[in-house]
């Protein structure tokens, strides 16, 4: 579904990614783990076209997308939940969802389906996004991305700063998306969440994938976590 090959990217003259390889298959959750500054968020931003890819390629369904302007990437079917949610704060919940729907010209049926996943959002449609609680904001950030009906969903630390019940809800949502055939790329710092939802774990160090392992059977105290994540 999503193939990342030898991608180099960074911020101006500062290179952060030094040739990353990663695959995300339909119906699978690929979890990217690594220390702060390893390049996890940079990778997702490069895939979304928000940072220029200076070398390598990003392909979606076999077609190259790394040369596309950023606004074309979501139209091809990649949804993005950025770190820190980055909602349109002054806009209402309904308007935030509408922005998601507009990207791929989806209608009320998709919106109703998203509201079915997160019923609490349905009670707050007229409320400004900035006034929601942290958990509700994360629901909206994921719901907004799901309004695209994405084939690939990029989630950047969606459980960061959330209470356990919200973390459980997000785990359930990711599992449900996997069952529906969505290719999920998850950046995650919590080992237990990664092990609970991921099919594969890619450990990123210094802008490269240092190791990729299957999540099944991996213990929470496996040496990879200590070596690449520092936990």
């Amino acid at each position: 579904m999503l193939e990342i090959r030898g991608v180099r990217a960074g911020y101006g003259a500062v290179a952060v990614l030094h040739g990353i390889d990663l695959d995300a298959a339909a119906g699978q959750v690929s979890c990217i783990m690594g220390r702060n500054g390893a390049g996890k968020t940079t990778l997702l931003r490069a895939v979304m076209g928000l940072l220029p890819v200076t070398a390598g390629s990003v392909r979606l369904g076999g077609a190259p997308i790394h040369h596309l302007p950023a606004h074309e990437v979501p139209r091809r079917g990649i949804g993005y939940v950025p770190q820190g949610r980055r909602l349109f704060g002054p806009l209402t919940v309904a308007e935030n969802l509408e922005i998601g729907l507009m990207a791929r010209r989806r209608g009320a049926a998709v919106r109703d389906r998203v509201l079915g996943l997160f019923p609490r959002l349905a009670e707050r449609l007229g409320q400004a996004a900035a006034t929601l609680s942290g958990g509700e904001q994360q629901m909206l950030a994921i719901g907004r991305a799901l309004c695209l009906e994405p084939a690939v969903l990029l989630l950047d630390e969606p459980t960061e700063g959330l209470q356990p019940s919200m973390v459980a809800l997000i785990r359930d949502t990711v599992a449900r998306l996997r069952a529906e055939g969505v290719a999920v790329v998850l950046v995650e710092q919590r080992v237990e969440t990664a092990l609970a939802v991921a099919d594969r774990l890619a450990f990123v160090t210094g802008g490269r994938v240092a190791e990729t392992v299957a999540a099944r059977g991996l213990a929470a105290d496996a040496p990879q976590f200590a070596a690449h994540v520092g936990v």
């Binding site: 950023a70 606004h71 979501p74 993005y80 002054p90 308007e95 922005i99 507009m102 990207a103």
Partner: peptide, 23 residues
């Protein structure tokens, strides 16, 4: 919708681009 797109771009240009808006 044009106004909604303008307001979204006003709030966060990068996120607007990540949702298909040609800023």
């Amino acid at each position: 919708r044009a106004g909604l797109v303008m307001r979204a771009t006003q709030v966060d240009r990068e996120t607007a681009r990540a949702f298909g808006i040609d800023t």
